[in-house]
Structure formats: structure tokens, C-alpha cells
Design a protein around this nucleic acid. Sequence first.
DNA 1: GATATCGTACTCGGATATACATTGTCCGAGTGGTGACGG
DNA 2: CCGTCACCACTCGGACAATGTATATCCGAGTACGATATC
Lengths: 161, 161
Amino acid sequence: MKMSEGVEWTAHACTLLAALPPGIGLSAAALAEFHDLAPAYMAKHMQALARAGVVESVRGAGGGYRLARKPHDVTLWDIYEAIEGEEPAFRCSEIRQQGPCPGIGDFRKPCEINAIFGRAETAWKAELKSMSLADIVADLARKQTPARRAQLTEWLGEKLG
Amino acid sequence: MKMSEGVEWTAHACTLLAALPPGIGLSAAALAEFHDLAPAYMAKHMQALARAGVVESVRGAGGGYRLARKPHDVTLWDIYEAIEGEEPAFRCSEIRQQGPCPGIGDFRKPCEINAIFGRAETAWKAELKSMSLADIVADLARKQTPARRAQLTEWLGEKLG
DNA sequence: GATATCGTACTCGGATATACATTGTCCGAGTGGTGACGG
DNA sequence: CCGTCACCACTCGGACAATGTATATCCGAGTACGATATC
């Protein structure tokens, strides 16, 4: 089972957006350049985030993407769901009801194996929902040295004009 | 993100094997027939379980697959890992260190985003590890009607000879 | 009648095609900024 | 000098191709069972 790498890309991109002043955004090209990623593919993933309402898109010159909500109100789950979709990883196809001997269990009750995987995914989802972009940005700020912060502000100044 | 349907196939197959008397097994063809699945593909998945040591294979006439351990000692995680492998779903490629401005955070410490996904997968894994085949079989037995149990034993008698 | 041997049917195991999803790229649609032009 | 208009550059958005992974199948390797022939 492999998660799309788009999740990693957009998670880092949103972290950067969350570190900007409210209402300020960056173009998809700039977000891609920041982590040395393929610009066109990054743009495709940002579109998914825009459709999901995590970010807002601003077209035209000087446009780009900016967070649609405050960093505290965007969780890693929101980003994951925007990229991967809301379908669970485990899809029960009810094979217990197929075959020459479907007489195991009560079909009015959910498949037990499906129920276990469902519980597991709920636990996983809860962990992702517990962390917002604000938490991540705060963590990064704590680890950051002054020299590196200056490097970041210089790059941002160049991009924001 | 999508889990291989082989996980569902083998989980149900192992549940059936766990319901048999200790040391008794079934051929891959019989396991496939039981849930009306493609026999050759079912065999391929059972091979993965055999490599992982979840089941033992017996070649030759009358052979097949049987559980390598007691049902209580086989968890859904064992089956998942045998099919999907042990690599995590989220692979951190350390893109935070790439690009023109890699100066965010302390690289000696793990990437915060990766850490969150790691915690989430740990929670997910714990849930799967908490359920053994014995638990699942017990649950099915509780839901089962006498008529359906008779149907199962008849089919098994035909297959086991 | 007992035993050793051969043949056969059955099963696993891995190598080999196919279908589908993800990844990656491109060009058109839309929008704000900018410069020229006229009042 | 100021307002308006048209053009242009920039950005998003979705359609289109390439690649990789999961799905599906087949044929060869190996083993136990049973029949047969011999002692």
C-alpha cells in the first residue's frame, strides 16, 4: 500500500503557506521551486486542494494559492483527503456472500474483517486530525536558527515583490 | 490510497483455515472456490503468506495450505504485512532539504510531517495487531445459525475426503 | 500374499502477459496589471 | 494632467500521454498416492 507522494508535496507546501501572513499566497510555480519539485505536477495537486476547499486560488498576474482557512483550522487529514479521496483503503467486496457455501455469519451485520479495518482506519484518521498546520509551523519555528530564518525571508521577499 | 484486494482474499481464506481442526489444510483451488475467486490469483497470494511464514505449504496430491501457527497467534497485521510488505504507506523523501531555501528546521531531527504520519500508522497497526484469527472465528461462530453450519461441514467433507 | 517399483494425478512455485492507476506534461481559459491614447 | 480602453503577461484549469504497479494467467517442478509386476 503506497500513499501518493502528492500528499507529501502538498503537506509541505501548505506548511509554507501557513507560515506566511494571513491572506498572502504563492504561485504553484513558486511552491514547486521551494522544494525543487516538478512545477506542472505540483500545480495539479494544488488544484485538488482548491477543489477540496483547503486553499483558495487567485488567477491572473500576481495570483496563486493561499490558505482558505486559518492554519489552526487545517489538519493533515484535510490535506490527505483532498489528494487521496475519502474512500477507505480497505474496500470490503463482501466475498463472504459469494461461493458455494455462503452460510457463514449473519449478513445483516457487517463483515467482521471489514469492521476491524474500519476501526484501524478510524484510529489512523484521528491521529491525522489532531495535528493542524499551526502546530507544525510552531514546531518548525522552534527548531529554526536565526540564520536560516533570514534565508527564508529573503527568498520570500524575492517572490512576493 | 488503495489496499490490495489480496488482503481481503487471504484474510477470509485464513479465517476459513483457522476454523478447521489443527494441522488440516485446503488447496489454493478449494480456498478460491469457497469465495468464488480466481484460482490462479488466489494461489499467488497464498504463496506470499507461505513466504511470510503465516501458512505452511504441502505439495503433492492431497496437499495445500494450512496455518503455520495457532489461530490465536496470527493477527490481521501478519496477513496484511505478508501481502503488502512492511514499508510504511507514507514515505518521507526529505523534500524539506531540497530547493533554494532548505533552511527550515533542524535536519538532525526527523521531519515533523513524517513523524505525524508515522504515529498515525503506528495507531493503525496496533488496531490490526489486536485482532487474531481466533477472535474472528469466535465472532463468526456466534453469529452462525445451525443450518448454515451444516452447509459448511458438508462442503468441507466433500473437499477433505 | 507381500513388497518394491513405476506411472500418474495433483499441488505448489515462479515466470510471463494484461489492465488499470498514478505520475508527468502540455496547451487553452481567464484575469489583473500596464501602457498608450484621447479628452 | 486624468480617465478609459486595449493589449499583454501571468496564472490557474483541465485534457492528454507515459510510466509503474497491481491484477490475472499459464506452464514447469516436485510430491504423494495407487496400480502393477515380481519375488
